[in-house]
Design a protein around this nucleic acid. Sequence first.
RNA 1: GGAGAAAUACCCAAGCCCGGCUGAAGGGAUCGGUCUUGAAAACCGACAGGGCGUGCGAGCGCCGCGGGGGUUCGAAUCCCUCUUUCUCCGCCA
Length: 424
Amino acid sequence: MIMINQEYILKQPEMVQKALLKKGVEVNFDGFIEMRNKRVELIQEIESIRAKRNQLSKEIGVYKREKKDTGPLFKEIESLKGTITDQEENLKEIEKLIEKFLLKLPNLPDEDLLAGDKENNQVIYTHLTKPEFNFKVKDHVELATNLNIIDYERAAKISGKGTWIYSSIGARLEWALINFFIDQHHKDQYEFMLMPHILNYQSGITAGQFPKFEDDVFWLDGDEKQKFLLPTSETALINIHRNEILDLKDLPKKYFSYSPCYRKEAGSYRSEERGMIRGYQFNKVEMLQYTLPEDSDKAFEEMLNKAKSLMNQLGLHYQVSKLAAGDISFAMSRTFDIEVYLPSINIYKEVSSVSNSRDFQARRGMIRYRKADGSVDYCHTLNGSGLATSRLVPAILEQNQQADGSVKIPEVLVPYMGGIKEIR
RNA sequence: GGAGAAAUACCCAAGCCCGGCUGAAGGGAUCGGUCUUGAAAACCGACAGGGCGUGCGAGCGCCGCGGGGGUUCGAAUCCCUCUUUCUCCGCCA
């Protein structure tokens, strides 16, 4: 299990260092290179001894069959025993260290990205203009509470902070969004997958969540980190083809899934994250593709356009941001966010992240494909929310609110709402 | 949750009791060929992958019979452990 291509580090360490610096990560490869060299040294020593031992063992077999004296052979083999076990221990130790180091290195950002964090994100597209209101706008918490469609208080009683109940029409609205998205993805020939919500540790490694973000998920099984609740269905979808070699003709694989997303999101509440903006559990429909390396840029555009199309159909004002290298998550090379406008706070909030991990996750999960010439190579993997429904409800409530506190349902959702056009 | 059984290559499946000539029989699928006007059938041939090390290279070496560990000069074969699957029982939407 490896992560960023070790070849890069060995052959162009400065390039890798520079790229990681754009993500704000400073690394020194001296120790790594030293370990790599030591590793090769040990392998060569161990393998030559093993070759000798294998050969002698084979001869013992032959001697026994021919009833010859095996004494001298045993004497010779005896001398090999001690050193080999010691060196095997050392090799195992060093390989563990190498892996530990590599697993903590984030993916390299694409070259065209700006360095730096959030402040360097660029808005590259805007859909519609800020909605104007000739009355004082209410925030989604007030709207939803007055309309009796979201119940925060009872959720706190039943579960705790950071949760809510979609009640009645609210549940219907949330579900309408999910169903609308599902139908749209079907139309585009994506395969619908309902994944387990309880995942094992390796799944988190492949996705790139672990080891770095182990504390951001909910663990089951008490103290030992064995099983966790998925923080997004990407984590499950990316593992479907772990340790597999896919047929060329099967690529690209296009999946989508719906799942609740469970996140610890350690940190304090800010006023802009009130209500359903950030909770321990939210709903999301997720798209995920496995592609040929040469096709991943095309797939990225496709998924971004799909996410935009969903937003367009909902008629919401939003923008698309090209994220700066430092704002991109650990496992990704490139991410564009779709951010929906929330009038109450005059802020754009992410409802979709479309990302290309290139071969980063594929390397962690040994997700490969067989080329026409019979050789194997790593796939590229991409994911994108399509979309995060729990953040769309606030946006719909706020952007579509009317003077009397009622809310218009986006037209495309009306059929999914049993004909309801307005919540009042 | 309890009791048993199993995991071998793309698929099926032998080998495991009795460790060494098993880098793993046999069949199917697949690919190439012969035959045929073409196809099918029949026949012939190929078909153990993947990782790692080394070499310009042909190649050579190491590890691979679910994962990990152990015993042994030597393990698919013996021991331990984990995972998964199946059967039966219990519980249950």
